[in-house]
Design a protein around this nucleic acid. Structure first.
Length: 269
DNA sequence: ACCACCTCCTGATCGC
DNA sequence: TGCGATCAGGAGGTGG
């Protein structure tokens, strides 16, 4: 499931590979990925040149002449660069460039999304406008003040992209573990020191994972840009029954607001 | 305004 | 062994 580090890894790879390419045609094999009217989407993209790729939280932002293509990979979305090979199962969008190369969007669960915005308004309109700051840009004291007003558990708060962006289910478990905070703690019980620690842990975990190219949990055949090494660094996530790397007690798996959650009951309070 | 719950989708895994 | 049921989950929508 791509979170900030995986999306950033994809961003870097695609930007390096595709900057300067001009879009020749767009084919929607499964139109529901795209929120716009299909014909509008296709005709708007045709003829525009890709100048670069930015990222906001877990969104990829393809910067074109006049528009920005906003992509969210959700759980299993990935991109491949191909040259007119036969369409494979689960490939839902093809963007063909004048060079003959094609950017293929592949998504088994069809959960990913694509939106078009203009260069003028993409930052001030949804979905980007709804995003809170990334952990590295969030003042810990401001974060603590937000926590004090909330009666929800700390894990779902950290997953709320309007409050803090970039964390998903994997990195939130790792962040909580590093800060010794139990995922079911009610947000307003988080102390100032804990809030400071959580922001530091989230920043560290995302930076470290990004430097390792993200986390590859399911072994897919190499997805473009996403064959990271952070899975070797995971302390709790996906480690049910394994000894806690700090105290040795077995990691347990529980549900928190419907999300599979890994925790060391001895280290996290 | 806030929060719990539903929806989307398919392949993997579970239970009998 | 087979097959239906359940699970996984990010974010937007709905309804209390």
């Amino acid at each position: 499931m791509p979170e900030l580090p995986e999306v950033e890894t994809v961003r870097r790879t695609l930007e390096y590979a595709l900057s300067g390419e001009k879009i020749d045609d767009v084919i929607l094999h499964y139109a529901k990925i795209v929120h716009e009217d299909p014909q509008y989407f296709i005709e708007t993209l045709k003829g525009q040149t890709l100048h670069g790729i930015e990222r906001a939280g877990k969104y990829l932002l393809f910067i074109l002449d006049r528009h920005v293509l906003i992509v969210h990979l959700r759980m299993e979305g990935k991109f491949y660069i191909k040259s007119q090979e036969p369409l494979e199962k689960h490939e839902h969008v093809t963007i063909r460039f004048q060079s003959g190369r094609e950017l293929r969007y592949h998504d088994v669960r069809k959960f990913g999304t694509m939106d078009l915005r203009t260069l003028e308004n993409y930052l001030s309109s949804e979905p980007v406008s709804n995003l809170g700051p990334e952990p590295k840009d969030l003042d810990p004291h401001v974060f603590h003040q937000i926590c004090q007003k909330k009666s929800i558990e700390i894990k779902p708060l950290l997953l709320d992209q309007t409050i803090i962006s970039g964390l998903g289910n994997i990195y939130v478990d790792e962040t909580l573990f590093r800060s010794h905070v139990h995922p079911t703690r009610i947000a307003h019980t988080i102390t100032k020191d804990e809030a400071i620690s959580l922001i530091a842990s989230a920043t560290y975990v995302l930076n470290k994972a990004t430097s390792l190219g993200g986390t590859t949990i399911r072994s897919y055949t190499s997805s473009l840009g996403v064959s990271g090494k952070f899975q070797n660094e995971l302390m709790v996530h996906m480690r049910k029954g394994s000894p806690c790397p700090v105290c040795g007690q077995a990691i347990i798996k529980m549900k928190v607001k419907g999300r599979g959650t890994y925790v060391c009951e001895h280290c996290q309070h």
